[in-house]
Design a protein around this nucleic acid. Structure first.
Lengths: 126, 126
DNA sequence: AATAGTGGGTTTCTAAAAGAAACCAGGTAT
DNA sequence: ATACCTGGTTTCTTTTAGAAACCCACTATT
């Protein structure tokens, strides 16, 4: 049984969605928001190394795609809370698994890299 | 219980791995190679829209990370077969789910985008 | 003998994106 | 007055992605 949408086809809109999901920051953001709603600077502190610009852009895209909900409160200073939507939640477990795989298998990957680099060095002796 | 490696920490090597995995082309490549070994141009034809350069770079990185195995046969013209490794296989189902989620939920995402864009238009009337 | 085609790439060049750092607004506390 | 808070945007530089052309070794065609 074939899909109506095929992510392997060039002009398919699923490509755009996949390109959105397959992003380091999106994986990390959805992983956090899957646990609890969070505010902008809270996310920024949790996700170490993300710049304000990139975080802001990522959240905007996630909001536009209906994966994250943005709510501003007229406190002083202003409070903005980001939370995951039902659609986002249906995705969160999958993307979290990516992060967990990275944490669980980092040692195997590093070992593979070292063995690859060592072999390359032997081959490419100038 | 805390992980030894925390993907939310800036200097953590898992970040590098996650950044590698969270890539549109890597998801698509691993999805295909999880089904069967494939040759370079076969991958290129299946994954519509990928350039030779990007495919070549992605495969090199996957090989270095120990996720994909590259085997060249001295036929004429040369034959190169890419296959998934056990480590890569342990990841393939997770990344395939990303692609499947995109195919399954594209309509909800497009609907959310349209409603977002319509609301934005109403707000931002100049 | 020259030309075209094959698989599997690399090189070159340009347009787009990521990232670091500075800036801003509106308000509070010192 | 000055410094600080949240939640961003702007500017500028460095990477990266992507399109297109090229390359090599070989074969088959004219």
């Amino acid at each position: 049984m074939k899909h109506a949408y095929d992510v392997y086809a060039q002009a398919c809109p699923t490509r755009v969605v996949l390109d959105r999901l397959a992003d380091k920051w999106i994986v990390l953001i959805l992983g956090l928001l899957g646990e609890q709603p969070m505010r902008f600077n809270q996310l920024r502190r949790e996700i170490q190394g993300v710049s304000q610009k990139v975080l802001s852009q990522a959240l905007k895209k996630l909001e536009r795609d209906g994966l994250v909900h943005r709510q501003a409160f007229a406190t002083v200073p202003v409070t903005v809370e980001y939370s995951i939507t039902p659609l986002g939640r249906s995705l969160a477990s999958t993307v979290s698994e990516l992060a967990r795989w990275a944490e669980a298998n980092i040692e195997s990957v590093i070992a593979a890299q070292q063995s690859y680099d060592a072999a390359e060095l032997r081959r490419g002796e100038s």
